[in-house]
């Protein structure tokens, strides 16, 4: 029972990370119906930039710098990889372009920071806290709180501010949003910036627990993509639940079956969702008009 509770705790922390990256996928999908397939690399870059900056400035000043870096990196991805594809209404140009940019970012990171896994300093005590016989790392709590806080902040911005409403309007109907005087190209750039910022934030949240390195992004990005599909690309609630489902099944399978199979249940779930409810567990079915 205690082991199960212990596994659940780790699963929840991992799942929240998947959830917050998947939330980033949703942000760009909402406004532009495109995704940054280099999302994992945005996370990796955020984490490694954080590692370099943290040694100079300390942890708390590092955070806003990493967030600003994420905003910038996301804008670059949109301008170089996505804008042209949207303009020409290319169905797949952005897929290849964002994957290519992700590979370039990864190569750059390998050259700057090397290929090895690096230790990331933890802002919180690294000794686990015992709670009813279950050991919880303070950083795991920070992951859950930080991820939820970020998602709530974006949600609050969208609902309360006029600029957030402009983002929602663009997601609703891009042409009509343009008629309101909203610069929808800028809104799409902004959503990419915000999406990469989310990933960079996830990178510094997870790094103290998992180590960081140029190779940390790929698997996380892919799993978060699975979460976004499972939860639905349009549902904020869906990515949290989807992330938790994937994180928990992973840790449970890793312990009770074999770590070699830990990715299987989540991916089987992905296949099931794709064949039974392609809009995601919480998604609203949309019909593509041709």
């Amino acid at each position: 029972m205690q082991i199960l509770a212990q596994l659940l705790v780790s699963g929840i922390a991992v799942g929240m990370i998947y959830g917050v990256i998947a939330f980033g996928y949703q942000l760009t999908f909402a406004t532009s119906k495109t995704l940054n397939f280099g999302q994992g690399e945005a996370l990796m870059l955020g984490s490694l930039v954080g590692l370099t900056v943290v040694s100079i400035t300390g942890y708390w000043i590092m955070l806003p710098i990493v967030l600003a870096f994420g905003l910038l990196q996301g804008s670059v991805v949109e301008r170089l990889g996505v804008r042209q594809a949207i303009k020409t209404k290319s169905e797949s140009g952005w897929i290849m372009a964002t994957i290519a940019l992700g590979i370039i970012f990864k190569n750059m990171a390998e050259n700057i920071w090397g290929r090895d896994a690096l230790k990331f300093p933890s802002p919180l005590p690294e000794a686990p806290i015992g709670f009813m016989g279950v050991n919880v790392l303070p950083m795991e709590i920070a992951i859950v709180v930080g991820a939820l806080a970020l998602m709530l902040a974006v949600e609050f911005f969208n609902r309360r501010s006029i600029y957030g409403k402009a983002v929602v309007a663009t997601a609703n109907d891009r042409d009509a949003a343009g008629l309101m005087g909203i610069n929808t190209s800028l809104v799409i750039t902004f959503s990419y910036a915000l999406s990469s910022m989310t990933a960079a934030f996830a990178g510094v949240l997870v790094a103290p627990v998992t180590l960081t390195g140029a190779n940390m992004g790929g698997a996380l990005g892919l799993k978060a993509f699975a979460v976004a599909i499972i939860g639905g690309l349009s549902s904020g609630m869906g990515v949290v639940v989807g992330g938790l489902i994937l994180g928990i099944t992973e840790t449970l399978t890793g312990y009770y079956v074999s770590t070699g199979y830990k990715d299987v249940p989540g991916l089987v779930l992905l296949l099931l969702v794709l064949s039974l409810k392609p809009s995601g567990l919480f998604g609203v079915a949309t019909i593509k008009k041709v």
């Binding site: 929602v168 309007a169 949003a177 343009g178 008629l179 005087g181």
Partner: peptide, 23 residues
């Protein structure tokens, strides 16, 4: 671009209404 024209003072109520349904 559309948004610049709107900002100069042209409003367009488009065919099919195009209201923002989730707002």
């Amino acid at each position: 671009p559309t948004h610049a024209i709107t900002r100069r003072g042209m409003a367009h109520s488009p065919e099919g209404r195009r209201v923002f349904s989730t707002l």
